[in-house]
């Protein structure tokens, strides 16, 4: 798979800070993959996200997006057009008074032709399931709906990558589920590359790859199954693991033979049930 975002030895320190927020990160994000990034507060996961569309540029090292160096100010629109960002607070990223006008904001900024904008806006709203509410005022929507509008606003830009910086932190469980299923669909059905920054481990279960950030380093990087299986690492990082991973781990410790690591509830239940039913027969 070809990498769409490449970090090469990236160092970054916020102005006025003594400690580095990113200390030598090397990373490649593959096209059309769903990458989740977990980490405790201050682990550098947000700083990492902000480097992906040139909100921040490295003090040292290099970040390239589809081959374009993010530090190249001439080409900053090229980078931002390719990497859509969704932020934590849904209220602070919606600019217009009407849902569809907000979704049109990015293509308007890019000078897209009006008829084309209309088509993109309608399509984006249908993709996130907000087409029916296109004439609504954003402040009357639920948190989950606002975040879906924000996602639509980003996909109307037709980016290759969508980076979500803790998009679910301020949402209720229903809103969280709406957002996660929307981005999962974007990746699986539209082939979009998705980078989801979060501190809810349950949201990482469906990802292709899970990266754990810690003090500006990549502390772990692998499939969610493999990363969550390392319980001691997770504990060291102040993170919890999904109940499924914990249960499989403890059952194994108690001498049960469970061949596969399954993180989704149904898969995990299948594994366990199969063991019990096998011993019965």
């Amino acid at each position: 798979m070809e990498p769409v975002i490449v970090f090469e030895n990236v160092h970054y320190t916020y102005p006025g800070d003594e400690l580095e927020s990113l200390c030598g990160v090397d990373l490649q994000i593959e096209k059309s993959s769903f990458v989740a990034v977990l980490g405790h507060n201050g682990s550098g996961k947000s700083t990492l996200a902000k480097h992906m569309n040139a909100i921040l540029v490295p003090d040292e090292g290099r970040v390239t997006v589809c081959g374009v160096d993010t530090a190249d100010e001439e080409r900053i629109l090229d980078v931002r057009r390719r990497v859509g960002m969704v932020f934590q607070n849904p209220d602070n990223q919606i600019v217009a008074n009407v849902v569809e006008d907000d979704v049109a904001f990015a293509p308007e900024n890019l000078g897209v032709e009006p008829a084309q904008i209309r088509r993109r806006v309608d399509e984006a709203l249908k993709t996130v399931g907000m087409y029916e509410l296109r004439m609504h005022a954003p402040h009357l929507l639920s948190g989950g709906q606002k975040q879906r509008v924000a996602i639509a606003g980003v996909i109307a830009m037709e980016p290759e990558i969508i980076v979500l910086d803790e998009p679910t932190a301020m949402l209720d469980p229903q809103g969280r589920a709406e957002v996660v299923s929307t981005v999962t669909r974007l990746c699986r059905e539209k082939g979009m590359t998705v980078v989801l920054i979060t501190h809810h481990m349950d949201e990482c279960i469906g990802a292709d790859r899970l990266i754990i950030m810690s003090n500006g380093h990549v502390a772990a990087d692998g499939s969610p199954e493999a990363v969550f299986a390392d319980l001691s690492l997770m504990e060291r990082e102040g993170l919890t693991v999904p109940e499924t991973a914990r249960l499989l781990h403890d059952l194994r410790a108690a001498g049960m033979e469970l061949p596969d690591e399954r993180l989704d509830i149904d898969g995990c239940a299948d594994e366990i049930a199969a063991q019990f039913l096998a011993s019965e027969s």
């Binding site: 909100i55 931002r80 960002m85 932020f87 602070n92 049109a104 000078g111 009006p114």
Partner: peptide, 16 residues
């Protein structure tokens, strides 16, 4: 958020 969505002033903007 506006900059991330390629806002760069009124120049070259179109309207839906």
């Amino acid at each position: 958020a506006m900059e991330s969505r390629c806002y760069h002033g009124g120049e070259g903007r179109t309207r839906m």
